[in-house]
């Protein structure tokens, strides 16, 4: 499938998806609620079969949070970027995809650890890199750590 077909495929499933031809990959932004149904469809459908999630990360935008999924199909060799937009920064929540792509388990824990995004139904959502009693979400833009300041 080329980018155009992927775009069409996603629009068929999620009508409110925003597609953008990025400099490199096709970027599709969907609302966070739709992620689970779309993700299972992308993996299961033999036409898309995005079976390889090679990067999962979160981005802290001024007014919302994004969870970014870089997807690739090892059979069709096409790839694109799926972005799930969470409209709040206060208590962001999104469904986990770790039973679809098992690599997501650690990646989601990392995103939770650094951004505070709650992945619902995640089997073991704990702090991964930081200590369990750490306060705050360090990778957020408004995180302030007076002790370990980066010197500038």
């Amino acid at each position: 499938m080329n980018n155009e077909e992927i775009k069409q495929f996603i629009l068929d499933h999620v009508a409110e998806a925003e597609c953008m031809e990025g400099s490199q990959f096709l970027q599709v932004t969907i609302p966070a609620e739709k992620i689970l149904s779309l993700a299972s469809e992308l993996k299961a459908n033999p036409n898309t079969s995005f079976d390889y999630l090679f990067c999962l990360t979160a981005v802290d935008r001024p007014d919302h949070m994004e969870v970014v999924y870089h997807l690739k199909s090892t059979t069709h060799n096409h790839q694109f970027v799926l972005k799930a937009k969470i409209n709040t920064r206060e208590n962001p929540e999104i469904e986990t995809v770790c039973h679809i792509w098992r690599t997501a388990e650690l990646h989601e824990r990392e995103a939770y650890d650094l951004f505070g995004i709650k992945f619902l139904n995640h089997p073991d959502l704990r702090r991964l890199l930081l200590t369990d009693d750490w306060e705050g979400w360090p990778m957020r833009k408004d995180y302030d750590d007076p002790i370990n300041m980066i010197a500038y």
């Binding site: 079976d51 090679f54 690599t103």
Partner: peptide, 9 residues
């Protein structure tokens, strides 16, 4: 399948 699913490269 597991290698792909786990992203083992």
């Amino acid at each position: 399948e597991d290698a792909i699913s786990f992203g083992v490269t």
